[in-house]
Design a protein around this nucleic acid. Structure first.
Lengths: 221, 221
DNA sequence: TATAGTAAGCTACTTTTAGTAAGTCAAGTT
DNA sequence: AACTTGACTTACTAAAAGTAGCTTACTATA
């Protein structure tokens, strides 16, 4: 367990187990996906070319197209894979907490840790280039933060005994997520700040408003 | 003053004042910029083509390239123009207020009003497609929100007599801006909510955290 | 074991679009 | 009248997405 292996390295090794070149579909697919993520991370969506991807995979272009459909679908697949991973990490961290504020804090820390460990990919897939036009994919991350936000607000309002409209929960979750994303982008140029500080900072910024938001929401039922 | 004229209509009228086709450079430039913004709003960066822009302007492609340099520069110019307008509107609204919270409230309302009146363009230039890769342009809007946030935090900390690090003001401004942008995107699918509600909602979400954030910031000098 | 079927891959295209080289044509300037 | 300049054109190149149709190796079964 001394060395760490990247997804690309693992996939390449698996492919090279077939020295004659003819590799089973699911193996080739994993390799192409891993190489694509790397390529997008290096160059961004617009500049990354399918020709180069084919070259790196040591395969011709139609093979790529047969596997992934189109450049856009490939990009979406990369986002889906990465955001799935992010979601898992946050969920894992949250699951150890029971109080809404502690959950948000744990989720926040997990978020920054994930980004810290995947700077390049994260920037390419979630920030740069066309990322936002595929927002339906990154959407799944928001869905999750939605749950955290909902937990916070519902607890706050359960006291008053009011049912908050779903709509407002949803919008607030988007706002919270937007704040996290934006500050993560800014963090990119200030990497000297540790995850813990980033996380506490965001908690300090958002929790007071979230807990007191119920007042506002009760005005507009 | 009965009818309203769009930027495109005005520019087209100016161009048609030269029936022989040879139009002075600055007039043609204004027309091309207006048409470009319209085209990007309709199709988004990736799908909009320079050929079609040339066609719509009734001019050949090299003319476009002579005027605007490249597709990316053209897009940046559109963002710069639009964000300049947004900045002006917010500045105007803020200038009528003196207290930080009132300023944030006024700025917030101006923000949502602007977007409400420029839905298509705003979405294409600031959200869709490549928008975020040109974030240096949209950056100028953040700079302004930075001032508002700084006002809030400095007032809060002046009481305690501490000097907040510039870095944290900046990051917080990004977070606030990200929250606004994200909720504006979400608003796109919930247009039934009036600007005033959106604005008050964001104020309710952000102000408590902003005013209390000083506690956190004083921990880390 | 011969052979039909299929999975993996290739060469060689088409199409679209950003960007450019080189020239035309009208109007003023000397 | 010759010369420069500024708006504009035709006709290209280059790069990259995506595809049609063929080849080759492996596999199952008669």
């Amino acid at each position: 367990m001394g060395t760490t292996h990247s997804a690309v390295q693992i996939a390449t090794a698996e492919v090279e187990a077939y020295p004659h070149g003819r590799v089973p579909r699911h193996i080739r697919e994993k390799q192409v996906l891993a190489l694509a993520e790397e390529l997008f991370a290096e160059k961004g969506f617009a500049v990354a070319s399918m020709d180069e991807l084919a070259l790196r995979a040591g395969v011709s272009k139609p093979v790529i197209y047969d596997l992934v459909g189109s450049k856009e679908e490939l990009f979406k697949a990369c986002i889906a894979r990465a955001s799935g991973e992010l979601r898992e990490q946050i969920a894992e961290a949250v699951s150890h907490q029971s109080e809404p504020v502690s959950q948000l804090r744990a989720g926040s820390l997990a978020f920054f840790k994930f980004i810290d460990e995947h700077r390049q990919s994260w920037s390419a897939l979630f920030v740069g280039d066309v990322a936002s036009s595929f927002s339906t994919e990154a959407e799944s991350v928001r869905k999750q933060q939605f749950d955290l936000v909902a937990g916070l607000l519902e607890k706050a309002t359960r006291v008053i005994g009011t049912q908050i409209e779903y709509k407002f929960l949803e919008g607030t979750a988007h706002a919270v997520n937007g704040a996290f994303e934006a500050v993560a982008v800014w963090w990119w140029e200030h990497p000297e700040l540790p995850c813990e500080v980033m996380s506490e900072w965001m908690v300090a910024l958002l929790v007071p408003g979230l807990t007191s938001l119920s007042d506002f929401l009760n005005i507009k039922p």
